[in-house]
């Protein structure tokens, strides 16, 4: 690995790969999940390295990475926003919240803000339908959102209050 060759991160990845050494290609998804946990995203050279260590072909790895929505091939912001696009949220006005987020952060779906603080993604359903509309920031869930409360929450994160 050339870039991203932070020695500590690489050591972490190696120790994870060792755990799955005997699992064959069945372990590819957990390995990628661990790698993303370590790096925050899946850089090309990390994927290449995983391929070399596991013997799984690069095409196969790319196939899996691009199939699942969890995997990111671009760096993520410090705070990951997941806006729920479930049915209940839709009928209760998630489109308004989406426009509030886009407006506040000036980003589109899957994009990172200029200051690197936020990445905005949509999620199919977060399963908190009774609190719709809902979003998650990091691992915190916020419900019954309005345009105003959404902006306020994002302001709090941006100001470092959360």
């Amino acid at each position: 690995m050339n870039c991203n060759c932070n020695a500590e991160l690489k050591r972490k990845l190696e120790s994870e790969l060792e755990k799955y050494a005997d699992s064959g290609k069945g372990a590819l998804i957990p390995i990628l999940q661990k790698a993303q946990e370590i790096y925050g995203w899946l850089p090309a050279d990390v994927l290449e390295y995983i391929g070399k260590k596991t013997g799984i072909k690069p095409a196969k790895i790319t196939g899996v990475v691009t199939f699942y929505t969890q995997f990111r091939t671009k760096p993520a912001g410090k705070h990951l926003i997941l806006l729920c696009q479930g049915t209940a949220c839709h009928v209760n006005g998630s489109a308004e919240i989406e426009s509030a987020i886009r407006g506040r952060l000036n980003v589109g779906e899957g994009e990172i803000t200029e200051d690197g603080l936020f990445t905005y993604n949509n999620a199919a359903c977060l399963g908190c339908c009774s609190l719709s509309p809902v979003m998650m920031v990091g691992d915190k869930t916020y419900g019954k959102l309005t345009r105003e409360s959404t902006v306020k929450i994002l302001d709090e994160y941006a100001g470092g209050a959360v």
């Binding site: 479930g86 049915t87 949220c89 199919a124 359903c125 399963g127």
Partner: peptide, 11 residues
């Protein structure tokens, strides 16, 4: 892998 939007009984 409860995926239906609008269903959360399994969760």
């Amino acid at each position: 892998d409860e995926g239906d939007p609008g269903a959360f009984m399994d969760r």
